[in-house]
């Protein structure tokens, strides 16, 4: 374990340095995404004031605001761009450099990305969680913060990130067959956006669809952690959804290994 850590620590470090180089770029990117949150906020505000009811499908307006902010935070935490990396490396042949090293292919990505994400995540998560609590408290008039909820949310996010990471690696191998990664990625994001509740909370969908989407792996990405933080899942329901998350994480982990084996067999790299 210690030896393993020593191997992969440099990858984390490289990731941290990478993100430090493009910090300004990252800030603009985040600002752009934050703007999308404001659009959501206004549209929901208009919807609630047009609807004439306080609660829609179990969400009050203040819960909807919390949902939007948490969606922004959760999407950032679990984001993973393995698909691009795999596709690019197969295309330009730099994958060969990873193959000749005695380290796991997936693991090197994982740790590099962790290094990429950790500093930014802390910089983002703490103020955002604080903001969520301020919004919740002022809009409902009572303190709703629960440390257990926060811890479960963090746990759920970690599992969600692993699902996303391995899913994207799988997708990278498949997308490589399509060749046009940009287009394929757009389709993927679009489908996931809907199935994971990013576009609209799954509770707003017709019952049958909601049930189906909740079982699919994509709800495990964003929706489950957010519902856990908001205290919508309790007791056995909570255990069920956490269990489902773990199931999907293992599923995509195994699938990525299988695809990797199949891909390496067919891989031919010209030049270097």
């Amino acid at each position: 374990m210690k030896r393993k850590l020593k191997i992969y620590l440099p990858f984390i470090n490289a990731g941290i340095q990478e993100v430090a180089t493009y910090r300004v770029n990252w800030i603009f990117y985040m600002l752009g995404n934050a703007l999308a949150c404001f659009v959501s906020y206004f549209i929901w505000k208009a919807v609630y004031s047009s609807g004439g009811t306080d609660t829609m499908n179990g969400f009050t307006m203040s819960q909807m605001v919390v949902y939007i902010v948490l969606m922004f935070l959760t999407s950032t935490i679990i984001a993973s761009d393995g698909a691009w990396v795999v596709g690019e490396e197969i295309r330009d042949g730099s994958i060969a450099m990873r193959l000749i090293k005695p380290v796991s292919y997936n693991a090197t990505f994982l740790f590099q990305e962790l290094g990429n994400k950790l500093p930014t995540e802390f910089a983002l998560a703490i103020p955002m969680i604080f903001a969520v609590e301020v919004i919740r408290t002022t809009m409902s008039g009572e303190i709703q913060f629960s440390i257990l909820g926060l811890l479960l949310y963090i746990l759920s996010c970690i599992i969600a990130y692993l699902i996303n990471f391995y899913f994207n690696i799988c997708f990278g191998f498949i997308a490589f067959a399509i060749k046009y990664l940009w287009g394929a990625n757009m389709m993927k994001n679009c489908i996931i956006g809907f199935l994971s509740g990013t576009v609209i909370p799954l509770a707003f969908l017709p019952d049958a669809l909601e049930k189906l989407f909740l079982f699919l792996p994509f709800a495990s990405l964003n929706y489950t952690p957010i519902m856990i933080y908001m205290g919508k899942y309790t007791g056995t329901e909570l255990l069920y959804y956490l269990g489902l998350q773990i199931f999907w994480a293992f599923f995509f982990f195994a699938l990525s290994k299988a695809l990797w084996k199949a891909a390496v067999k067919r891989l031919s790299v010209q030049g270097g």
Partner: peptide, 16 residues
């Protein structure tokens, strides 16, 4: 293939 994938991708965003 690329441009079919691209057009469908943008169509899907609109559909969503």
């Amino acid at each position: 293939g690329d441009f079919i994938v691209g057009i469908i991708g943008f169509l899907m965003i609109q559909m969503s």
